[in-house]
Every structure is written in structure tokens, then in C-alpha cells.
């Protein structure tokens, strides 16, 4: 649910990075944080365990520029990927305007990808959303790893709806901004379509 402030002339939107444990959601946000001008970003918050696994969420506020005199601000969130944090994941989806599903390209993680995608659908449905109607993109991450599935295979398995998808290596940043731009654009287009 975006927030339009006529007084400060701001449009605020919420984007959630979803995906299985260790697929690189936090790494996406860290790369964006490191490569963004200080004036365009706020502090990045990570609520993580002592072993740096996301416990509740990561949060990064980002300003992307102005449209017709309105500043566009995006709040990026990640969810904890580990299966047993499902209650927390549901909470973070509340009020979401757009979803990035980060898939782990490694063959060994195919089942985890499918399980997480199914979990995303279920949790969105519980909040009254449908993944088919939300602005939604997919990122095939970890393309630099040795035992990875071909993109066509990942696409057939995870992207039957043919939404925009991107290959990425989030640790070095490849594909990270392409993914972000695509989802931001879809969110703004949806706001325009639905009349805000």
C-alpha cells in the first residue's frame, strides 16, 4: 500500500525481496546500499542473528528521483528466508506494493526455490493479495556458482507467468540494479493504472 503525501509531495512504496534461505536477498540490499549516493538513501537496518542470518527483516529507504514534482521513495525490505520464520515473513508482506523473488540458481536449491515461491503465494493470499496481480519480478541469483541450472530450466520452473526476470550475481552486483529498476517501474506503472 503506497503512501502519497501531498504536503511533502512524496510517493512512498514498499518493495519486498522474497526467496529461500541464503539466496542473497540481504546481499541485494547491501549492494544497493553500497552503490547509492548518500543523499538518496537512509540507513540500512538489518535485524539479524549472531551468525548474520536475517531474523526479522532488512530495511533500506531509497529515493529514486522525481516524477511530476513528486519525490519517489522506495522502502526495500527483505524477509527471513529460513522456513521456520514463516510468521515473520507474513508480517513483512503487509502493505507490499511490489515483490522481487530471488531464486538461488544452484541445482541443489531447486526444491527450496519452489517451496519458497509456493510459500510466497500462500502468504500473499492470506493478506488478500494475488501474486498474479501484484507488480512482481524474478531474479536468478548466484549465476557465478559452479553447479547451476540453466536459465531456461529455472524459467520453466519458477516463471510460468513470464514476468520480467533477470540473471544476477548479487555479491558483485551483476543484475541487482536491473532487478530493482524493473520492479520500481512496475510499481509506478501499477499506481498510474489504478489511479493511486
Amino acid at each position: 500500500m503506497s503512501f502519497i503525501n501531498y504536503l511533502s509531495r512524496e510517493i512512498n512504496c514498499k518493495i519486498v525481496y522474497y526467496g529461500p534461505g541464503l539466496c542473497g536477498k540481504t546481499t541485494n540490499l547491501q549492494f544497493i546500499y553500497n552503490k547509492t549516493n548518500p543523499e538518496a538513501k537512509g540507513k540500512m537496518i538489518s535485524l539479524a542473528t549472531e551468525t548474520e542470518r536475517t531474523l526479522f527483516f532488512d530495511f533500506l529507504p531509497l529515493a529514486l528521483g522525481e516524477i511530476r514534482g513528486f519525490k519517489t521513495r522506495f522502502h526495500l525490505y527483505t524477509v527471513p528466508g529460513q522456513v521456520f520464520y514463516d510468521a515473520s515473513r507474513k508480517l513483512i508482506l503487509k502493505g507490499v506494493d511490489g515483490v522481487v523473488f530471488v531464486a538461488d540458481s544452484q541445482i541443489a536449491r531447486m526444491e527450496a526455490n519452489l517451496e519458497s515461491l509456493e510459500n510466497l503465494r500462500t502468504n500473499l493470499a492470506e493478506q488478500g493479495y494475488s501474486l498474479d496481480k501484484l507488480p512482481y519480478v524474478i531474479q536468478y541469483n548466484k549465476r557465478d556458482m559452479p553447479s547451476i541450472a540453466p536459465v531456461e530450466e529455472l524459467r520453466a520452473m519458477l516463471n510460468p507467468g513470464n514476468v520480467p526476470d533477470f540473471e544476477a550475481v548479487a555479491v558483485s552486483g551483476g543484475g541487482v540494479f536491473d532487478t530493482l529498476k524493473a520492479i520500481a517501474k512496475l510499481v509506478l506503472t501499477e499506481l498510474k493504472r489504478s489511479g493511486g
Binding site: M1, S2, F3, I4, Y6, Y129, G196
Partner: peptide, 9 residues
Amino acid sequence: MTNPQMVMY
């Protein structure tokens, strides 16, 4: 959508 849009005037 389940929640109405938040707008501030």
C-alpha cells in the same frame, strides 16, 4: 487490495 491507500492532504 485489502488496505485502502494512505493519502495525506
